[in-house]
């Protein structure tokens, strides 16, 4: 118990990894349960952020180089591109079907 309190008081690699693991699980939960497509997108953003925390934590603690941070920049770039495209698709779906609930969208065309 004393050891655990001592561990809690000195944040290191494991702390960041556990935070990112919980964040990842919350994002997966949003992707699995939300009916609104935009909330599914928010879940994807949470998952990407969790992955980024992992990359940067390993870059800081495990390698001591900046490669992880460079990869994290690429993840952010892809997240921006993904959000733009996905929202354009969602807006188009809303115009055609008048709903963005993923369980009601069972047709590719109207």
């Amino acid at each position: 118990m004393q050891e655990f309190i001592q561990w809690l008081q000195t944040p290191g690699l494991k702390h960041f990894l556990i935070i990112s693991g919980i964040l990842f699980s919350l994002g997966v939960f949003a992707i699995l349960t939300r009916r609104n497509a935009i909330l599914v997108l928010m879940g994807i953003e949470l998952v990407l952020n969790a992955a980024n925390i992992n990359f940067i934590a390993f870059s800081r603690y495990a390698t001591g180089t900046l490669d992880g941070q460079v990869i994290a920049v690429f993840v952010i770039i892809l997240a921006a591109a993904e959000a733009a495209i996905a929202l354009a698709i969602v807006l188009n779906i809303y115009q055609n079907f008048n709903t963005v609930n993923v369980d009601e969208l069972n047709q590719l065309r109207d």
Partner: peptide
């Protein structure tokens, strides 16, 4: 985590 550039990028992009 000593990633100052990433933190500012996170704020600007996200």
């Amino acid at each position: 985590l000593m990633a100052d550039f990433l933190a500012v990028t996170q704020l600007m992009i996200y």
